[in-house]
């Protein structure tokens, strides 16, 4: 199974690199859809049908949206001219990332080593999830122990919908 997972992940990485560099935007979207549906197969192989179901539906709807947008506008990618100022900005951002990496390294130093999981929270979830009365333990964790997480997800979708409605309004109220 791990070999199959590695093969699919390799194809997904190739498709993602192609999606960035493709000159035709429609083929970039198709490559991006390959990444999304590859993720569905990965979730199924890892026995997570909940997330696979969400991923397959959301991926399909977003693909339809993006294909509609590309067919309505242009299919060609813009030519971007790189001048000296942008090299300076790129250098600065690399420096900033290195500083961040240094402090991140110091923050994660007291945590467990790579590959050793701290199972304290997971054990508490596994023992407590049965008390919620929901047979689907994922739903129990999602709506009881980690309700803030799920509320945040819902608010993100709400903000996205408000943003789209606000941006795509030609006839204002005033």
């Amino acid at each position: 199974m791990e070999l199959m997972l590695a093969v699919i992940l390799g194809f997904m990485i190739i498709a993602a690199i192609y999606a960035i560099h493709a000159k035709d935007l429609l083929s970039a979207i198709i490559a991006q859809g390959f990444v999304g549906y590859g993720l569905v197969i990965c979730f199924l192989l890892l026995r997570a049908p909940d997330i696979a179901l969400v991923q397959i539906v959301v991926e399909t709807i977003t693909l339809i949206f993006m294909v509609a947008v590309v067919l309505d506008s242009t299919r060609k990618e813009l030519d971007v001219q790189v001048d000296r100022k942008q090299y300076r900005i790129a250098g600065l951002s690399v420096l900033f990332m290195l500083v961040l990496l240094f402090y991140f390294n110091r923050i994660i130093a007291p945590l467990d080593g790579f590959g050793e999981h701290s199972m304290r929270m997971a054990e508490a979830y596994a023992e407590g999830a049965g008390q919620t009365g929901a047979i689907n333990l994922v739903a129990g964790v999602l709506w009881d122990f980690r309700g803030y997480d799920t509320l945040g997800e819902a608010v993100v979708l709400f903000a996205a919908a408000i943003g789209v409605v606000t941006i795509f309004r030609l006839t204002g109220k005033n």
């Binding site: 909940d50 179901l53 969400v54 709807i61 929901a134 047979i135 689907n136 129990g140 999602l142 997800e153």
Partner: peptide, 12 residues
């Protein structure tokens, strides 16, 4: 709360 799925998948 019984089978895989839930609000997000069903709503989509």
């Amino acid at each position: 709360h019984l089978t895989p799925g839930g609000g997000f998948a069903g709503g989509a």
